[in-house]
Nucleic acid binder design. Structure first.
Lengths: 305, 305
DNA sequence: CTTGTCCATACGCCCAGCGTATAGGTAGGT
DNA sequence: ACCTACCTATACGCTGGGCGTATGGACAAG
């Protein structure tokens, strides 16, 4: 590429940020040069480059002093954070500090979450566990943000290695002052009377459960907080696996079992080729927790692709 | 500099991170090159450089697919965060988004803090206010992390523009089960009987208050949490301005007024030459709040250097 | 076995970015 | 008022890091 004539706009680089910070810390272009192992001239030009890039003057300089401008203060604060972040990245990578990232769309392992964390800590203290919520269909796996993801939504699992670790009953979420909140449970065929909130990216409920002629109205939301807020207003109800009811107990929201519906299968997915060493351990632990709470533990198939 | 023979170790740059992310997002070195406006070869080398730099393989590649390794997942997660941070830095700087950073060592404006924030929001909604705690003698001003800093410690103010915005009575902090906790107040001359916790960087209490022959034993701490922890154990007491008593009310810690001691002057300091436009507004607002709560409002001098 | 696709490596070139040298400007001492 | 010390900005010439092109090698599909 790089067609002749294409003036490739200079990009922000860490060099610029390191330079800015060094200048402020030493309160001098000359000393900053020393500290960075480059000449004063280079420092001057690098900072000038940064200021051009941002279109703002960051440092006020006289021949006696250097002080950040208002814009400089903001940039400096961010620059320090960013540089600290890069150092951490390098440290993590070079020390091979091992950490298992488990992504999930919004409720991790539901009611088993705490127990999962507790047992992991107990059995594998050498591997740090991190549960991260990512508002994407694959809980961040596709984006490389985790090693393992919990999936409840009806997505295509074939691109991934996957294992079904359990099932969760479906619940109806509604405002606490909703008339239905007084009842013990709701029947599937009653749902179409109401408007249903569905999370656009991670929703678990497919409309195909109802005959085409009789489907509920739908309001789409963008993440779980939206979804809960929409429900709390009373204008919608929501359908969700038991995990949500366990993890998002909130004032103003009431959960009731949904009768007549299939449970939601809970899957773990991961990358077949680049498996974190602890992946299978985590899968086994999670599946064990789901199994423990069942009367008749039936075998779960496919622990690999 | 750059003595001949000095192999300057290549430094991490944003280029590397952008490359890593692009490869994973496009799942291809070739496409990543396209997206980044460079050739596939350059992408390959840049990533190889990053892997060398970190000493870890980040991506597992076959001729058919590209997938992050465990180390890659971690690096990727950090890289995405860092890149988002840089974008925000650029956006803030280029849009001239104005924000006033007020640094403080540990209790901001004390009991006036909430009111300060409320009124600022009301009177100057166009300027975002940020109170940031920095564990340094100047509350982050010297490090360029804020535009304005609240100072209670007896530091040299002459390098800065400064204004005294008010005074705060001194309090004694002690464990709640301390015998003194039953009393209404403590006298200054009783303090030397006890061991005193002093924060090394931001402590407000100078020992010169007592005759040299009769000074309290001292235990140094490194930040406010240390300080509170040391006191909660019961082995120390602490002296602190009223602001701390207002902002760090905790179980296990009791505050009592200290009689016979001068109040602590509260100063704001800022840079004379590169003043944020809203600096003086903020000073006036803070001083006003302190003045409001005094019987006899006496004029405060020096609103500038 | 052939073909297509993809990443790694070799090679040669070029300009971004470096250091040196110097100009210009400001504070402080006398 | 002048001089000195010190600091940043700019000019200039050079060098090597990093680019693109070309090619090799590995792998999957047909």
């Amino acid at each position: 590429m790089d067609k002749p004539g294409t003036t490739t706009a200079a990009a922000l680089e860490l060099k610029h940020l390191r330079c800015l910070v060094a200048i402020v810390d030493t309160a001098s272009f000359t000393d900053a040069g020393h500290a960075l192992g480059m000449s004063q001239a280079a420092v001057s030009r690098t900072l000038a480059g940064l200021e051009t890039l941002l279109g703002v003057r960051l440092l006020h300089r006289t021949s006696r002093s250097v002080a950040p401008t208002a814009a400089g203060v903001q940039a400096l604060a961010r620059a320090r954070i960013l540089l600290a972040g890069t150092e951490e990245l390098v440290r993590e990578a070079t020390t091979g500090h091992t950490r298992l990232h488990i992504g999930h769309a919004w409720s991790a392992f539901g009611r088993h979450t705490t127990e999962f964390q507790r047992r992991w800590q107990e059995q594998h203290p050498e591997t740090e566990l991190r549960l991260i919520r990512h508002n994407t269909p694959t809980g961040g796996l596709a984006e490389g943000l985790c090693d393992l993801a919990v999936i409840r939504a009806p997505i295509d699992l074939t691109p991934w290695s996957h294992a079904r670790i359990g099932d969760e009953a479906r619940y109806v979420a509604m405002a606490s002052d909703d008339p239905w909140a007084r009842r013990r449970s709701i029947r599937l065929d009653e749902i179409p009377r109401r408007t249903m909130a569905i999370d656009r990216r991670t929703g678990t409920t497919a409309l195909s459960q109802w005959p085409e002629a009789d489907r509920p109205a739908v309001e789409f939301t963008h993440d779980i907080d939206d979804w809960l807020a929409a429900i709390a207003t009373g204008r919608c109800i929501g359908l969700t696996p038991q995990a949500t009811a366990a993890q998002y107990r909130r004032d103003g929201i009431t959960y009731r079992p949904l009768r007549g519906a299939e449970p939601v299968p809970v899957h773990l997915i991961w990358r077949a080729h680049t498996t974190h060493p602890a992946t299978h351990t985590a899968i086994a632990l999670a599946a064990g927790l789901y199994r423990e709470t069942r009367r008749a533990p039936r075998p779960r198939g496919r622990l690999d692709t």
